[in-house]
Design a protein around this nucleic acid. Structure first.
Length: 487
RNA sequence: GGCGCCAUGGCCAAGUGGUAAGGCAGAGGACUGCAAAUCCUUUACCCCCAGUUCAAAUCUGGGUGGCGCCUCCA
C-alpha cells in the first residue's frame, strides 16, 4: 500500500512516488533566527519530524534539510536593539532553537544550512535567472519578473490580474509589476552586505530556500514542507525562481501544516499572542506538547490553551500506564518458574498485530496522526484487558506476547516520538531509589498483612505528597513518579 | 475586493456515499481493606434550508457562523 499525501500544488491526495525509488528528499522551511521559537513555529517542526520518522519507519532513506534564515531585516533590527551584531544574534537564537527542538525530540536534519554560508550559490542562481531573462536589475536591486513567467500563481491558485486589484500590494516605482519580488537587495547604510555583480547587498527572502534546496537535494526533489502561511508568497516565489532557473519542476509534493490559534485567532509574532516553546516547557513536559500537537491532523487548525495541554497530559499518561503495565508484567513473567495461566496468547498477538496495521493505515493516509493515536489507545485497552483479567497469572507462557506488545510500543514510539518516556539520565541515583522504594513497600506490605490500614495509608499518602504513587495490584505493588513540569 | 479553509456529543477530535473511531469529563457497575490503575455499560436529530441518490455527516446549490492568505509570519 503506497503512502498518500495531500499535495497543495494539486489540492489532492496523491500516492507518494519519490524521485528516486526507496529514497525521499525533504526540505522544510526553518526559522528566522531573531527570537526564541513559539508554539506556532514548533508545529511544522514536530509535524514534519513525524513525517520523516514515519517514512523512515516504512523503509525509506530520508534526506532531510532544514534551513536557518540568519540574515534579514528583522534580524538586523533586533540586533541593533540588543546592541550586538546580526551574526551574534543569529548564532544565539540558533543555539536556543536547538535547545527547544531537541527537548521536543525533533530529530536533527541531515543538514541545517544557513543563508550566510551560501552566498556564492545564491548569487550564482540570481545571475542565472537574469541570464535567462526572468529578472532585471534596478539601482543594485534585482527583481523577479513575474509577468514574464506565465505559471506564476500555480501553487497558491492565484491569478496575477485578480491580485492586482487587492489593496495591500506595495507600490514601488522600481518594479515593473507590483508583484515582482526581490532576489537581491542593495545594501543600505550600516547593514551587513556581500559583494555581488550588482554591487554590495544581500539576498531577498525567497531565493535562499531555492538555492539551498537545489544544492542539497537537486531539482525535482520530493517533499517541501512549511506552514500554510508560506504558500503565498514564499513558496510561490520559490517555485517561480527555481523553475525559471532550472527549467524543470521544482518539487513533487508540497505539504503545508495548519496554524496554531489562540482563542481561535492565529498565533503570530505580529499579533503578539504567541507563546514561547521554552515557556510552555516550564509547565508541561515536552512529550505532552508533542502528543498535543499530533492529536489533531496536521492540516487542521489547532487551538491552544493550558486546559487542552492538561487533557493531553492525561491522554499520554494513559498510554504510559499501559506501557508500564506491560513492562512490569513481563518482569514478573520472566521471574516466574512456571507457565502461569491465562487465555490464549496467540489471539492476543493477532489482535495486537491488527492494531499495528490500523496504525500504519492511518499514517499511510496523509499522516493521520489523530487516527493513528486512536489505534494506540485501542492497542492499550487490548493489552490492559489481557493482563488485568482475573484468569491471568504471570508465567513463561505470556512472555512472547508481552515481548510483542513491547515491540509494537517501540514501533509507535519510533514514529510519534513520545510514547516512551526518555531514559533516565546516566549516573543518576536510580539504583538506590529502587532499593529504597523496595524497602518502603516491604514495610507497608507487612503492615497490610496485619491489617494495619492506618500505617499502610499513611505511607501511601505521604509518598503521594512526595510525588510517588503506589498501586496495589493482584500481582504486587507498583510505584511511579508523578511527572510534574519539565525541569 | 480576490482566493481558500472550517462547522461532528459537555470539551477535544477522526470519519468524504451505506444509519457515527478515539481521548478527556460525567453516570452506573466489576475489582480493591480503602484507594489508585484497569475493565464493562452508558450519553450524537453530524450548523440551517433545498436538491441529487435506493441510501448523505459525507455529493450539489443557497444561507448562517468562524477562520486564514493576499504585508513580516510556521
Amino acid at each position: 500500500m503506497p503512502i498518500k499525501v495531500f499535495n497543495t500544488l494539486t489540492k489532492n491526495k496523491e500516492e507518494l512516488h519519490p524521485r528516486d525509488p526507496g529514497k525521499v528528499s525533504m526540505y522544510v522551511c526553518g526559522p528566522t533566527t531573531y527570537n526564541y521559537i513559539h508554539l506556532g513555529n514548533a508545529r511544522p517542526l514536530i509535524v514534519f519530524d513525524t513525517v520523516r520518522r514515519y517514512l523512515q519507519y516504512r523503509g525509506y532513506q530520508v534526506t532531510y534539510i532544514q534551513n536557518f534564515t540568519d540574515i534579514d531585516d528583522k534580524i538586523i533590527n533586533r540586533a541593533h536593539e540588543e546592541g550586538e551584531s546580526p551574526k551574534e544574534l543569529a548564532e544565539k537564537y540558533i543555539k536556543a532553537y536547538f535547545e527547544d527542538a531537541d527537548a521536543l525530540h525533533v530529530l536533527r536534519a541531515d543538514v541545517h544550512p544557513k543563508v550566510t554560508d551560501h552566498m556564492d550559490e545564491i548569487i550564482q542562481m540570481v545571475q542565472g535567472i537574469m541570464d535567462k531573462g526572468y529578472a532585471y536589475e534596478v539601482n543594485g536591486n534585482v527583481y523577479f519578473d513575474v509577468r514574464n513567467f506565465p505559471p506564476y500563481g500555480q501553487l497558491s491558485g492565484r491569478d496575477l490580474d485578480e491580485m492586482k486589484s487587492g489593496a495591500r500590494v506595495d507600490v514601488d516605482d522600481e518594479k515593473r509589476d507590483p508583484l515582482d519580488f526581490a532576489l537581491w537587495k542593495a545594501a543600505k547604510q550600516g547593514e551587513p552586505s556581500w559583494p555581488s555583480p550588482w554591487g554590495p547587498g544581500r539576498p531577498g527572502w525567497h531565493i535562499e530556500c531555492s538555492a539551498m534546496s537545489l544544492k542539497y537535494l537537486g531539482p525535482g526533489f520530493d517533499i517541501h514542507g512549511g506552514g500554510a502561511d508560506l504558500v503565498f508568497p514564499h513558496h510561490e516565489n520559490e517555485v517561480a525562481q527555481t523553475e525559471a532557473y532550472t527549467g524543470q519542476p521544482f518539487v513533487r509534493y508540497w505539504l503545508h501544516n495548519g496554524f496554531i490559534t489562540v482563542n481561535e485567532e492565529k498565533m503570530s509574532k505580529s499579533l503578539g499572542n504567541f507563546f514561547l516553546v521554552r515557556d510552555i516547557l516550564k509547565k508541561f513536559h515536552p512529550d505532552v506538547v508533542r502528543f498535543y500537537l499530533l492529536s489533531t491532523h496536521y492540516r487542521s487548525p489547532l487551538d491552544f490553551d493550558d486546559q487542552k495541554l492538561h487533557v493531553a497530559e492525561k491522554g499520554l499518561e494513559r498510554i504510559r500506564t499501559s506501557l508500564r503495565l506491560v513492562e512490569s508484567t513481563l518482569a514478573l513473567c520472566t521471574k516466574a518458574q512456571d507457565d502461569g495461566q491465562g487465555p490464549d496468547t496467540k489471539e492476543l498477538m493477532d489482535k495486537l498485530e491488527q492494531y499495528k496495521n490500523t496504525f500504519k493505515e492511518a499514517m499511510d493516509d496523509d499522516f493521520n496522526t489523530s487516527l493513528a493515536i486512536a489505534a494506540v489507545f485501542d492497542f492499550c485497552r487490548e493489552v490492559n484487558s489481557f493482563i488485568n483479567q482475573s484468569t491471568f497469572k504471570p508465567g513463561k507462557k505470556a512472555i512472547p506476547a508481552l515481548h510483542k506488545a513491547l515491540e509494537i510500543f517501540e514501533d509507535f514510539h519510533s514514529v510519534l516520538g513520545m510514547v516512551k518516556p526518555a531514559a533516565e539520565k546516566e549516573g543518576s541515583s536510580e539504583g538506590i531509589e529502587d532499593k529504597l522504594m523496595e524497602i518502603i513497600i516491604n514495610i507497608r506490605q507487612e503492615a497490610r498483612k496485619k491489617k494495619d490500614w492506618a500505617t499502610a495509608d499513611v505511607i501511601r499518602d505521604q509518598l503521594k505528597e512526595a510525588g510517588i504513587v503506589l498501586e496495589d495490584t493482584p500481582h504486587g505493588v507498583r510505584w511511579k513518579k508523578l511527572d510534574g513540569g519539565h525541569e
